[in-house]
């Protein structure tokens, strides 16, 4: 590309129901690099954007769960393919946002992509780990299977803009939930890019919704929304998490408190899963 060419800049938008709207509020906020240089004006999502995102996630959930586990795995793997093909772009955003050396940013993106692949493999295995057949005393066939909680709100980690985001949103998605995620406030662009990639990865509309903006402004709406079944509070401090957890209790939400987020343990996969048990008689 010739040096004297003027770049075409991108508008960073929300992801709601498979579409990329600006915030209904019409607001945006300035995002800078770790060094304080202007990066972009990013959509500043509102409570109403969260509301719309929850409606979209709810509508998508039964359809997502109705797909075969194999199919869900293929869709998530496809996201890894898309991310791989835009690896340099992701790395550049991680580098600027997190203030990392170029090489470290690339390593972080590679880990994030491998994590997507890791989750892709879980869709058709989680039932084999969390499910069981139960030898009850009596002539019954008794088995337990995991099912998704439903719609999960994710307050993404503030520091790790891509890795932690991937880890937090794909865990509930892999086990059949749909997600409304609030991206890192100061470093939202890698999440926005990932959202754009879902559009070419066969993600059904509403499966992953991403709201950018001020976590403190929209989090209470998400935590108190009665049609949200679970909430991941990773991206807020302990005091705010306490407050949000109280709100979440209003509709008996499943709550994942801030905790170690970088490990690929089953903690996140188990967080938004319900166990259903079936009894069936056995007899001639």
């Amino acid at each position: 590309m010739s040096e004297d060419r003027l770049d075409v800049r991108k508008t960073y938008k929300l992801l709601i129901n498979g579409a990329f709207p600006r915030s209904e509020s019409g607001r945006s906020y300035e995002v800078t690099s770790a060094k304080g240089e202007f990066l972009a004006n990013v959509a500043q999502g509102s409570r109403k954007d969260v509301r719309d995102a929850v409606v979209a996630a709810r509508a998508a959930q039964s359809k997502w769960w109705a797909q075969s586990a194999y199919n869900r795995g293929q869709v998530i793997y496809r996201l890894a393919e898309m991310a791989e093909s835009r690896r340099d772009e992701l790395a550049e955003h991680v580098r600027l946002g997190e203030g990392l050396a170029s090489k470290k940013a690339k390593v972080s993106v590679s880990r994030a992509i491998d994590r997507i692949v890791w989750y892709a493999g879980w869709t058709d295995k989680i039932a084999q780990i969390l499910g069981s057949s139960n030898p009850v005393a009596g002539p019954f066939f008794n088995f337990s299977v995991p099912a998704p909680s439903g719609v999960v709100g994710v307050l993404a980690e503030q520091d790790s803009s891509l890795e932690a985001f991937v880890n937090a949103v794909l865990a509930p998605i892999a086990v059949g939930n749909t997600v409304v995620a609030v991206a890192s406030e100061k470093r939202p662009t890698p999440a926005v890019l990932l959202g754009e990639m879902t559009a070419t990865a066969d993600f059904p509309a509403g499966l992953l919704n991403i709201v950018t903006g001020f976590t403190g402004e929209v989090a209470p709406t998400l935590a108190s929304h009665e049609d949200v079944d679970g909430i991941d509070l990773t991206g807020v401090d302990e005091a705010f998490a306490d407050e949000l957890a109280q709100l979440a209790a209003g509709s008996i939400k499943r709550v994942l408190r801030p905790g170690p987020s970088e490990d690929a343990s089953l903690r996140r996969l188990r967080a938004f899963v319900e166990i259903s048990t079936v009894w069936h008689t056995i007899g001639q």
């Binding site: 194999y70 795995g73 293929q74 793997y77 692949v117 890791w118 892709a120 493999g121 879980w122 869709t123 058709d124 295995k125 780990i129 089953l266």
Partner: peptide
């Protein structure tokens, strides 16, 4: 293809296989 896809997902999860 599905068989390779399924076991691909196990290769990095053997610790969880029981």
């Amino acid at each position: 293809a599905a068989h390779f896809f399924y076991y691909a997902g196990w290769a990095d999860k053997l610790d969880h296989a029981g």
